[in-house]
Design a protein around this nucleic acid. Structure first.
Lengths: 108, 108
DNA sequence: TTGATTAATTGTAATATTGCAATAAACAAA
DNA sequence: TTTGTTTATTGCAATATTACAATTAATCAA
């Protein structure tokens, strides 16, 4: 069916999955890597650096914006994209909350 | 095209994305949550607990096994699934490596 | 042997994702 | 206004993912 049954899961489970899903594409990781390296950036640079077509990059940026991990500020003809520090911290916290839930068990 | 161009990205970027992708579905987060709560588990319990059909659960377990975050041990008619502690730690490290790369910038 | 139980596999339908060409929109410079 | 630059949107094709019914395989119990 291709349709995730979100109603079967807790809000937290859905939240973790949504974040992870957005991070689940190497182009988006590459974009974030690039943004981290710089202080700001325009889409044009990304197209050159990452090597995917401009509409594809634009689409990935949209996904990243959807979870708020990046934000864009229009500056004339170009757009300055950068990491949303607050959101990045929140996402880090959410993922670590989950990752740290696991304690050493003795089974298997 | 639906086909990720992995060759355009670094090994590390692909690795992070692969891990995140597997965590990018609430059913798989729910399965991991359930496994963490217990010390061991069988698929039957998961079907009841999560509320998806048995083949669907089986498919999600396969995805989780693919990245090694869980392991299954056959015990008679049922299978004992549990977290692979070593792999969990490795995955946590990989994700945190990425998440901690980001430092406070002053742009935007 | 059967019959029951449990989990994997297969096949299929529906939806989602990825990627890009073509186009549009928004702005700056001439 | 026209022209060039930059990014977003649209439309489409190809592939991937999600979900489940039906079936298979494997084991245990009687």
């Amino acid at each position: 069916m291709g349709l995730t049954k979100t109603e079967k899961f807790t809000e937290q489970q859905n939240e973790i999955a949504t974040i992870a899903k957005v991070l689940g594409h190497p182009a988006r990781i590459a974009i974030l890597d690039f943004l981290i390296k710089l202080d700001s950036c325009v889409c044009g640079d990304l197209v050159k650096d990452i090597g995917l077509a401009q509409p594809t990059i634009s689409q990935h940026l949209k996904e990243l914006k959807k979870v708020g991990i990046i934000k864009g500020k229009i500056e004339g003809t170009s757009v300055c994209y950068c990491i949303d520090q607050e959101k990045w911290k929140a996402i880090t916290k959410t993922l670590n909350n989950f990752l740290n839930k696991n304690t050493t068990n003795t089974c298997c």
